[in-house]
Structure formats: C-alpha cells, structure tokens
Design a protein around this nucleic acid. Structure first.
Lengths: 222, 222
DNA sequence: CGCTATCAACTCCTCAGACAAGCTGACAAC
DNA sequence: GTTGTCAGCTTGTCTGAGGAGTTGATAGCG
C-alpha cells in the first residue's frame, strides 16, 4: 500500500523538520506565507494548509496581521503512536503499574457504586467467558478491569488506562487467535478475588492479587 | 486577552462537535467540500483548512478522489492538557505507580551502566542539595528518579515518566517556595537506599523503598 | 453467467488573484 | 513624554480554474 503525500502534508513535514533543526526557535515568527511559498516552491494556499495542520498539532499558531509563531519545538509525541510502536510486553508492564496501583487505591476509596459496578461487570464477564465470541469476551474483561481502576477515583490513572486500552485489546485478540481459545477464559475466580479484596478494603491484598493476575497474562505472551 | 477565532477554526470546532454528536461515525465519509462549505456558509478553502486542522489532530483523514473520513471520534486528549488540569495528588499517584514498578523491574534488569548512572546522579543531587538554587536541586533530583525508571528498560514507562516530568517539576518548585526550604533536601539517604536495593537486585525492597519515599513526598502536599 | 476494460462522475489537490481584516512601528502633533 | 494617525506589512477568506485520483456503472467478451 503505497501512499503519495499531498504537497501540503510534505510542506508541513518540512516546516516541522526545520523547526526541529533550530531554524526557528520557540516563540519566533516564521517568514510570511508568500515568502515560504516561494521558498518551498508551492502555492500560498498550500502553505496555509501546512501551517493549519501544524496548528492542529499545537506546534504553530498564526495570528492575523502579526504572523505565524512557533509554540512548541516538536509535535507532542502522540501517545497512541508510542504505544503502537512499543513492545507489547512493555505496554503490559505499564498496564500492570497502573492497575496494581489502581487496585491498591481502590481498596481505600471504593464507594458502594463501585462495588455495584464490580458485581455488574463480573457477571457480564462470566456470561461472556462461557459463550460469547472473542471480541465480546475481551470487551467484558476490559470493562471489569476499567471498573477497578475507576474505583481508585484518580483521573490520571483512569485516563492512562483508557489510553492503553486499544493497544491491550488488540494484543488480546491476537493472543486468543493464536492461543488455545479457552485457556484464558477460566480465570473468573482471579477476577472475583481482586474485587473481593477491594470490597474488604485491603490495599495490599488487592494490589497483590492484581499483580498476580496481570503477571500471569504477561507471561503467556513471552 | 481577547481573541477572535478565525472562521476555519470555528468550522473545525463545528465539525468536531458534529462528529462527537454522532452525525458521522468512525470510518464514515463526510460530505464533499462544496457541500460542507454551503452548509456552514463559508468558502471552500475555509472548509479545507478546517479539515486540515482536524487531520493534524488525527481526527479526519482525506484521500484524494475518495473523500474525507473520520478516523477518531474525538481529538486525542492532549496528555499535557490532562496533566495540567489534573490534581497534583492524582499526578503524584500516577508517578508513584510508574516509579515503584520501574524500581521493581530495574532491580532485575539494571546493567552496570545503570549503576554508574545512579552513582553519578546521586552525587550530583547531593551537591545540589547542599548549595544549589531550587531549580538546580529539582533538576538533579529528577535526574536521579529518571535514572531509576530508565534502568527498568521499558520504553513505555520511561516515556510516561518524561511526560509527567514537567508537571512534577512545577509542583516541586511551588512546594519549595511555600514550604520550609530545607526540609526536603535532606532525604539523600532515602534516594541512596533505593539505588542500593536495585544494585542488590531485590525487586520487593526496591519497590517498597521507592513507594515509601514517594508517599512521603505526596503526603507533604495534602 | 462471470470476468475484465472502459469511462464518466465524483472527490480532493493545487494554484492564482483579489480584497478584507488585523497588527506594528514610524512619525507628526500635542 | 504622550497620543493619534497611517502606511505597509501580516494573515483571513472567497472564487474560479484545472489537475489528479477513486469509484461504481456499464459494455464487451469468453
């Protein structure tokens, strides 16, 4: 699958490259659109679209009448991209860090609503484990794990988990395809045990059980 | 500081809003440029710039000849933004999750180079704690903590730590300003203890010491 | 019937030109 | 020194034209 990039996109890359190379530093004003257009040998509207794209990526900012300014020296590393490129074991270790800490905090902070959520997602997971197709099962599994992290009532941890979710989901699908379909579906007890530890408000136990479960998942992938 | 938004920017917001409201779902094709321009009552080039901006934000993708397609239902939450908005305690708990897990992994994976890095950053930190201005001291402190995470040899954890760093750094500056200047500078021993646990290849000890130290930092902020 | 080649209609891509709107620094007037 | 004015720059927007790629319908062929 080849893909030719439009001129505007190439121009954006070129500008980004020049910014990275230090041609213009933070806060500095770029040459005018007409000048840039002449430099790169493209039309003015093409330059405008390139600038717009970098504005969308929060690298440039244009102010009418004043000019175009650099507001970041490089595109904010796209988290999605980092995760896509990363080894799945690295991602799982990241997830392990987030989730065990989440379980630990959840044990002290869980509300009745959180407990209800555990019961709900657990029964759902049980049902899916018995009969549902892979993607349903994975969805149910993830929903429970998300509920655990959500019970920590920490926006950063929740957001982190959500950003990890797509990558994890894909990895699990691959795993189930290659692997024995039913080996991983039978750890319902392990999940219930995590929820139980949180219900009992035992942080260490919750963290330990969460760690044990995720380590097991991780080890099946090595 | 008032700021009137250009039409193209407003158009981008409007498109984003419509996507969020479900008018077009994932993978779906948007109406043509001319149609959209007529709908929003703006020129074609304005629509093009709006689309370009959303392409930069990885929400839309345009393919010549085919159309413009939705590739994400919402703008990827800018990590920086999330962290800026988040409570500092939430951020510190996130850091705690990353760093204790990092210390644990580092204990099994640390190389001689990592150990050398510990020694180097530790002496640097000691020097800075005695005499350097706040920002130097903080920089030296962060350098050591980063070295610990780096020793885990996990790209995801390292990247996470780096994305947290600016927010943590700012919080520490504030903390030192408001607080007794010298209370926090004297925990050199705690830092050395973490490094020592990693050198001894004791994962549990390394994690425990890391957790203890970061919990203490966290508690000074509540 | 099934497959392939052709092609028209549609899409986005790029350019050029025109004018509007906003900012900035210089300079005159006070 | 302060203020007002303004010329010359900047980006913002629209329009019309033609280029290039995609897609689906259709005709032709085995």
């Amino acid at each position: 699958m080849i893909r030719r990039h439009p001129l505007a996109e190439q121009a954006a890359e070129e500008l980004l490259r020049r910014i990275g190379s230090g041609e213009w530093t933070l806060g500095e004003k770029l040459p005018g659109e007409t000048t840039l257009a002449a430099q790169l040998g493209v039309g003015r509207s093409t330059i405008r679209e390139a600038v717009r794209e970098l504005a969308g990526r929060r690298v440039l900012e244009s102010r009418q009448g004043a000019g175009v300014f650099v507001i970041a020296l490089q595109a904010a590393e796209d988290w999605d991209k980092v995760l896509r490129k990363a080894d799945i074991t690295d991602v799982l270790e990241g997830r392990l860090a987030i989730e065990t800490e989440g379980a630990r905090l959840a044990a002290s902070r869980r509300t009745p609503a959180d407990l209800k959520n555990f019961r709900y997602t657990l029964t759902d997971r049980k049902r899916a484990a018995l009969s549902a197709p892979d993607d349903w099962y994975i969805e149910a599994d993830m929903a429970f794990h998300r509920a655990v992290v959500a019970a920590a009532h920490n926006a950063v941890l929740t957001e982190l988990f959500d950003s990890f979710a797509p990558r994890i989901r894909r990895a699990m699908i691959d795993m189930l395809k290659l692997d024995d379909q039913h080996r991983h579906r039978h750890d319902q007890a392990a999940h219930a045990a995590i929820a139980e530890a949180i219900r009992l408000q035992d942080p260490e136990l919750a963290a330990a059980r969460s760690r044990a479960h995720l380590s097991a998942v991780r080890n099946t992938l090595t």
